[in-house]
């Protein structure tokens, strides 16, 4: 399958997320809370040759338009991702992901002594820094391997 085929292969309605770093597609789905249990048709291309990224992943979710705020959290692990909203087999909208100032409920704090990893009703929240993220509660900064901290 070529890049061209993957990117435009016809879905009638939905969202195509392109230019995900190779190997991160499952993390992208985890961040978006898509686990297949709610019935969406999801297609994944992994490690597709790409001029820009060397190897990239592509995710297509049918019959669901993901909102900009949902997609912005992808910027943490897929900063170069492009988003195509498809309506009636046509690309109706095209977006880049933007780094949000804060993400909540997506990542788990890496500090085992943080109150958010205790059995409390609180939702994790992180301030997004130029490099990495910072727990709003305990101040811990996570810089490396954010994907390993995704809450599933």
């Amino acid at each position: 399958m070529t890049d061209r085929e993957l990117r435009v292969s016809k879905i009638e309605n939905g969202t195509v997320i392109d230019h995900i770093p190779g190997g991160q597609a499952l993390n992208v789905l985890a961040i978006l809370g898509i686990d297949g249990m709610s019935g969406e048709v999801v297609s994944i291309g992994m490690n597709v040759p790409s001029d820009r990224l060397g190897r990239k992943d592509v995710v297509k979710v049918e019959d669901r338009e993901l909102s900009q705020s949902e997609l912005d959290v992808l910027s943490l692990i897929a900063p170069a991702a492009t988003i195509n909203i498809i309506r009636g087999y046509e690309v109706a909208e095209k977006h880049l992901v933007e780094r949000p100032s804060e993400v909540s409920g997506i990542l788990q704090c890496s500090n085992h002594n943080c109150i958010t990893v205790d059995n409390e009703p609180v939702t994790s929240r992180f301030e997004v820094l130029d490099e990495g993220v910072r727990c709003v509660y305990c101040d811990t900064i996570i810089r490396d391997d954010l994907a390993a901290h995704i809450l599933v």
Partner: peptide, 8 residues
């Protein structure tokens, strides 16, 4: 004893 407890 937990970090972030006061903020929460």
């Amino acid at each position: 004893p937990s970090e972030g407890s006061a903020q929460m």
